[in-house]
Write a protein that binds this DNA or RNA. Structure first.
Lengths: 106, 106
DNA sequence: CGTATAAATGAACGAATATTCATATTTGGC
DNA sequence: GCCAAATATGAATATTCGTTCATTTATACG
């Protein structure tokens, strides 16, 4: 059940949806990789050592979730984390591997 | 495919696995609910308004992921977040709905 | 004990997701 | 324009996941 709301842009509406995009070994590796700066698909692929098409699919998931964004760079495409990434507050949950800070309730 | 490793207790090894446990509307609601204190299954059920069995399955996911823990309390069972939840560091990713702070690389 | 209440479990099934493979698109260079 | 490189897309399939339903376990109480 999607809500292909014509007015708004992409999905990734619910928190769960965004977490779902991160909740994958491969996509998490991509995000981790991009946290050290923008990177071309080829570089990411080399770094992770996975198949081209598979990576592309995962990148699309991340794009759809509004977690990464892509820009053409010659023959290649440059990926980077979206600027959705910066803020602060309370309500922290430590997973051991990472901490999740929930917003006070949207 | 589980790895019922005889020596250790539960799974929730990888970060992705834990995120996966959180990446669900219902389970997220449970966690949110428990963030305001321990609660019996019945209370959680009333608060979320979902079926008993369904909630139970979701609680098991959260338990397996090491996110919540259960203790008997008479006829009822009391749930609360595990003490995996408290720490601090850097490498923050803002999802709009919540921020995820990755540990420096295990 | 028998019964009621609270919660957990397991099987079944459909829906969502990941992966692969083949093909299409975009771009730069010749 | 044509070719190769880089990436995206779509269909087909396999796998995982969420939900329901029926049943079971555990506890308290009379």
């Amino acid at each position: 059940m999607k809500t292909p709301d014509s007015s708004s842009r992409s999905n990734a509406d619910s928190c769960a949806a965004r977490l779902k995009a991160l909740a994958d070994e491969t996509r998490l590796a991509v995000v981790r990789h991009l946290m050290s700066g923008p990177s071309h698909v080829g570089e990411i692929q080399a770094a992770l050592g996975i198949e081209q098409s598979l990576l592309s699919h995962h990148l699309r998931s991340l794009r759809d979730a509004g977690i990464v964004e892509a820009t053409r760079d010659g023959k290649a495409v440059l990926y980077q984390l979206t600027p959705t990434m910066k803020r602060r507050r309370d309500g922290i949950v430590d997973l051991g591997c990472c901490r999740i800070t929930f917003d006070p309730e949207s």
